[in-house]
């Protein structure tokens, strides 16, 4: 696959999955053995993307991502993103706070045959937990 084709797959990840909330896209754009590489401090480390999506739908149903940069080389694609959301449901044991939250980060994806097979995440869990009051600001 070309780098442009790989970028198109990653664009579907942000737009169709996370912004349009189409869960079925997971099975179209990711490998069944998708490997996550969470930083040790990531607050939420779900086993599967389906679990992650379900948690997000419950806790932050209006989450909206903006992709600020998308670049690709070889079999890798990197997105620089930010999101805005409201915590209207339970998250990691914290009941809904109705708080507006925002975060920014970078994701590095590796693709094979048009599917995402590996993903390295970096967000600001410290900032997120402070915004919803689970940690002192």
């Amino acid at each position: 696959m070309s780098t442009e084709a790989n970028k198109a797959v990653v664009t579907r990840y942000w737009q169709e999955l996370w912004n349009d909330k189409r869960e079925e896209v997971i099975d179209e754009i990711t490998s069944p053995d998708l490997r996550f590489h969470f930083p040790p401090g990531q607050a939420h480390q779900p086993a599967t993307l389906h679990q992650w999506f379900t948690t997000s739908r419950r806790a932050f149903p209006n989450v909206r991502f903006t992709v600020h940069d998308l670049l690709a080389e070889g079999d890798k694609v990197v997105a620089r993103w930010s999101y805005e959301a409201t915590q209207t449901g339970e998250f990691l044991g914290q009941p809904a706070t109705q708080k507006q939250v925002t975060d920014q980060g970078l994701n590095l994806f590796r693709l094979e045959d048009g599917r995402i097979v590996e993903m390295w995440m970096s967000g600001d869990s410290l900032g997120l937990l402070r915004q919803i009051g689970m940690l002192p600001a």
Binding site: P39, P40, G41, Q104, G105, L106, S122, D124, S125, L126
Partner: peptide, 13 residues
């Protein structure tokens, strides 16, 4: 530069 370092993970360790 846009830097995302896992400070929370480092502190937790």
């Amino acid at each position: 530069a846009w830097a995302n370092w896992d400070d929370w993970g480092l502190i937790n360790q």
